[in-house]
Amino acid sequence: MQELINTLENCGYKVHLAKDKNEAFEISKTYIKDGISVGLGGSTSVGQIGLLDYLVKNENITLYNQYEAGITMDENIERRRKGMLTDLYVTGTNTLTKDGKLVNADGSGNRVAAMIFGPKNVLVIVGKNKIVDTVEDGFKRIMEVAAVKNIDRMNSKAIEMGKEPRHNLDNIANKFSYIKADDKDRIILVLVDEELGF
């Protein structure tokens, strides 16, 4: 693991290693300063470590929460846009390669766009199950694991709300990217020695 951390730091990432989701939560909280603005990218991992609930309940930050129940689609889109110009963008990743590339697919593209440019800093929660050897392995994992599980999750939610399930690979994974850190320490990785997310 130390070799991976060294590689990631040499690529320009700021890297933290957490032994479990509780430690990942404590590390992540250190980046949530009073008065900052925070954007969100779709991430099961952020929820699993308890960070999403913490952000929602934090009255000392400006959170652009597109997941708030009851908001209109127009408001959802507006919050996603505002989230891309925040002090801190909080998200997960589909995969991270051992040579330092974040490999992702999005439906709307706000998450991958924010990773590339916009927010002052990006905090990425990475479970050990997301680490792969190559970019090709990353895209393979997206299509065979992450996208399939996300479709199942979204369809289950649609059925619970009495809606027809409509998600397929085309509308959940139609914007692909792989990126490497640009400005030194702009992208902060919290590597968690547990399986998280999809």
Rank of each mutant, 00 (worst) to 15 (best):
I5V: 15
T7V: 15
N10L: 12
C11S: 10
G12V: 03
G12W: 04
Y13M: 06
A18D: 00
A18R: 02
K19E: 07
K19Y: 05
K19M: 05
K21Y: 00
N22F: 00
E23Q: 07
F25W: 08
E26W: 01
I27S: 03
S28F: 00
S28E: 00
T30Q: 06
I32F: 01
I36E: 03
S37C: 10
G39A: 06
L40W: 04
G42V: 13
G42Q: 11
G42N: 11
S43V: 10
S43R: 09
T44H: 10
T44A: 13
G47F: 02
I49R: 01
I49A: 02
L51D: 02
L51I: 08
L52P: 01
D53C: 11
L55G: 05
V56L: 06
K57W: 10
E59D: 14
I61N: 02
I61A: 03
T62D: 12
T62N: 14
L63V: 14
Y64A: 14
Y64W: 12
Q66D: 13
E68D: 15
E68H: 15
I71H: 03
D74T: 15
E75M: 12
E75C: 08
N76Q: 12
N76S: 13
N76H: 13
E78A: 15
R79T: 02
K82A: 11
G83M: 08
T86D: 03
D87W: 04
L88F: 05
Y89F: 15
V90L: 02
T91M: 09
N94M: 06
T95N: 12
T97C: 13
T97F: 13
G100Y: 10
L102I: 13
A105L: 04
A105W: 00
G107R: 11
G107A: 15
S108F: 13
S108Y: 15
G109T: 09
N110R: 06
A113Y: 01
A114C: 10
F117S: 05
F117G: 01
P119N: 05
K120E: 11
V122Q: 00
I125G: 00
K128R: 14
K130T: 04
I131D: 03
V132M: 14
D133P: 04
D133S: 12
V135N: 02
E136S: 14
E136K: 15
E136Y: 12
G138H: 02
G138D: 01
F139G: 00
K140V: 06
K140L: 10
M143C: 08
M143D: 06
M143E: 08
E144Q: 09
V145E: 05
A146M: 03
A147G: 04
A147T: 05
V148C: 04
K149V: 12
I151T: 10
D152V: 14
R153A: 08
M154P: 00
K157A: 15
K157T: 07
I159L: 05
E160L: 14
G162T: 03
G162K: 03
P165T: 04
P165W: 05
R166D: 09
H167Q: 09
H167Y: 09
H167I: 09
D170I: 11
I172L: 09
S177N: 04
S177E: 03
S177R: 06
Y178N: 10
K180H: 06
K180N: 05
K180S: 10
A181W: 00
D182A: 14
D183H: 07
K184C: 11
D185A: 07
I188N: 01
V190E: 02
V190N: 01
V192W: 00
D193E: 15
E194P: 04
E195G: 03
L196H: 02
G197M: 11
F198R: 01
F198G: 06
